[in-house]
Design a protein around this nucleic acid. Structure first.
Lengths: 249, 249
DNA sequence: CAGTGGTCTAGACCACATT
DNA sequence: ATGTGGTCTAGACCACTGT
């Protein structure tokens, strides 16, 4: 009987050889990226999802578990399961890794520095998986922790994904950039990949960081990905680690 | 009936309020750290573990799942569940984060530099959670990737945890340090915490790294923990990131 | 109170490894 | 053929939230 039920589902449209819970996970992701459930929305109850996907609680929960550990869904006991929204807390917890020495993690003060349009050079094209010369938005921010300048962030966005992005959109927000990507452009960052190295800071960076040119800085190369692993943001951060450290995870 | 079974177990010695699968996870960890199952050993089958802990498959598997994602156990379909052993592959995969630019991850060539006994200064005492002045082993290694010097590692171990540790033990091994800790001293590293910053390299470090003193280096502060979250190793790495990068995760 | 997710059961069959 | 972990079922009760 159990076996028959499983067989029926597989023959009914699922790929064979793929565990049911992975199929369910994929279908939930598709429902989100197709817009059926938007950021902040509550999903149907687990029992309803079981009916919809024709699976048992255990299988459904295994699929949802996967999506909660990757940060796509958030469960709240007694309330429901929700599509994760970006927030300051989520940004600090999942995406921002500079921590003041001898202090708690905190959301940085962000000072807008510059906005301009540019085109992808070889490096940016490679990182963002776009063609050489693709139009990009370039934003420069300065981040401070505890009243001290911590890093300079050079941000590059494929302009095609952010139609109508202007200096004013950047300056007039009162949320994190990732919240704004989500609310204004329906671009949801769900994962980032970072690579770190040590570098000497340039004259321009030194002025912004308020340290001497030639001082050592931590260089953080971050690419942010949306659903379906599409790169949506390249961010080069140059951090002065005199008063803060980088803590992975 | 289900409810009664659960109640019986809780009343029979488990703490109430704690999920059964967490109790099971704790008991498995205790069995490992008590030596009942050693690194590389196969655990009893899942069905036998169900009987031993008086839980169902689902609960047992949830406990074992937790221990596999944290790297304590390794499952092999058709063969069994094993206590994880340290190996080159595991070291690269879980604990070593320097990756050559434009190349695959690889295990570094390790050149022994120095061995000496010392005592914990304030910093080391804090990091290793020992008293000021506690005897420590201090090992200096030089790591190379692709034929180029990549980093200098300063390693500090609480001498009490490594009785009989000598220069010869270090030099005559043909395994990773973590394998040696496990095989010769029954110290099993299951987790590390790292913090990164940028620094300028000293004259001594410059000579070992074969770069100019004053060059920027990546400073990696790593503390390794055994079961029960006991710190067992402090490692300060100074990396030349000209030919490699640090990749978290 | 009703409704949600959280935990747990007592099995079953499937895929893989070893003998 | 046997034994292992991997997947899945069809429920149950528990803990928490909001009315």
């Amino acid at each position: 009987m159990n076996k028959m039920a499983t067989r029926t589902l597989i023959e009914g449209g699922f790929q064979s050889g793929v565990p049911l819970y992975k199929e369910v996970r994929t279908q939930i992701l598709q429902a989100i990226s197709s817009g059926e459930w938007r950021a902040g929305d509550a999903l149907p109850t687990e029992r309803q999802l079981c009916e919809r996907f024709h699976v048992s609680m255990g299988t459904l929960r295994k699929a949802v578990d996967d999506l909660t550990v990757t940060g796509v869904l958030v469960r709240q006991q007694g309330r429901g399961t929700f599509v994760a929204r970006h927030s300051e807390d989520r940004y600090i917890f999942s995406f921002f890794h500079l921590v003041p020495r001898n202090a708690q993690k905190e959301y940085p003060k962000v000072d807008f520095q510059n906005f301009k349009m540019t085109i992808a050079d070889e490096f940016a094209a490679d990182q963002l998986n776009v063609r050489l010369g693709t139009p990009l938005v370039n934003i420069t921010n300065r981040l401070s922790l505890g009243g001290h300048v911590a890093s300079i962030d050079e941000i590059f966005l494929p302009a095609a994904l952010f139609p109508g992005m202007t200096r004013e959109v950047i300056k007039n927000r009162n949320t994190t950039l990732y919240q704004m990507y989500q609310d204004k452009f329906e671009v949801t960052v769900i994962r980032t990949a970072e690579r770190l190295s040590a570098a000497v800071c340039s004259v321009r960076q030194g002025k912004l960081l308020e340290i001497d040119a030639g001082s050592p800085v931590l260089r953080i190369n971050r690419v942010a990905y949306s659903f379906n692993n599409q790169p949506v943001e390249l961010r080069l951060s140059f951090a002065n680690t005199d008063r803060c450290e980088y803590v992975p995870g």
